[in-house]
């Protein structure tokens, strides 16, 4: 399998597979991630409790309000099984709030806010400022060939300390906005709201397809 792939490839590992991807559906832009998976022809299901984690090949943690998703994960008793699954090697892709929830420590958290872990990084919430600072841009991601990746940064976080994780995306000024560590991938931005599917495709082909579970 080719680790980098051409624009909207019909790569066999994505196209003809029988993967089922879970989308954490407590709050946030669940629908947009489902639309990307639909466009890629990948089966998916919403994850709202621990049982929903059984049998999925990977999990997407969408954008939303990280403090709210954290609270709801406690309330609906999803937190412990989810952490267990991540430690166990479940491939995870987190966007924006999803990145925050995968981090080890936070700058700008609200009182008592917790994360699931998975990435040994420190993330600053709302690092660009409020919504009037939110922006669209394109990012050159060496792992993803072809045109630069379309990215929407919406009250987005920045990775301030990458720990032992590998940087997979950064802005021209050096701000780190994407990392991978083993089975976990986190990005600050939303390709899914712009109809950009190549980050998902790369994650499916590289992280999910090679997961040792």
């Amino acid at each position: 399998m080719c680790p980098t792939f051409p624009h909207l490839t019909d790569s066999p590992s994505v196209a003809g597979n029988s993967l089922t991807i879970g989308v954490l559906a407590l709050q946030g832009d669940v629908r947009e991630h489902e639309q990307v998976l639909d466009a890629l022809g990948v089966a998916h299901r919403q994850v709202r409790n621990g049982n929903d984690l059984d049998g999925i090949d990977g999990l997407i943690i969408p954008g939303g309000e990280s403090s709210v998703i954290d609270k709801l994960s406690h309330i609906f008793e999803l937190r412990e099984p989810l952490i267990e699954a991540i430690v166990d090697g479940l491939p995870v892709l987190g966007t924006c709030a999803g990145l925050i929830l995968l981090s080890a420590s936070l700058i700008g958290a609200i009182d008592g806010q917790q994360t699931f872990g998975g990435l040994d990084i420190t993330v600053e919430r709302n690092a660009f400022g409020g919504q009037v600072e939110s922006f669209e841009t394109t990012i050159v991601m060496p792992l993803i060939g072809g045109e630069p990746v379309k990215a929407a940064f919406i009250r987005a976080p920045i990775i301030r300390d990458t720990g032992t994780s590998t940087v997979i995306a950064e802005l021209p000024n050096g701000d780190v906005v994407g990392v991978r560590n083993g089975n976990c991938v986190g990005i600050s931005f939303h390709p899914e709201v712009l109809g950009e599917s190549r980050v998902h495709e790369w994650w499916l082909d590289t992280v999910v397809a090679n997961a040792r579970r």
Partner: peptide
């Protein structure tokens, strides 16, 4: 260098999408 564009229609509607399922 890739430009940053603020206030695009998708950035505006995108924040609302992040609020879905919420109060």
């Amino acid at each position: 260098m890739a430009e940053k564009t603020v206030g695009t229609p998708l950035v505006k509607s995108g924040l609302a999408e992040m609020l879905k399922g919420g109060v």
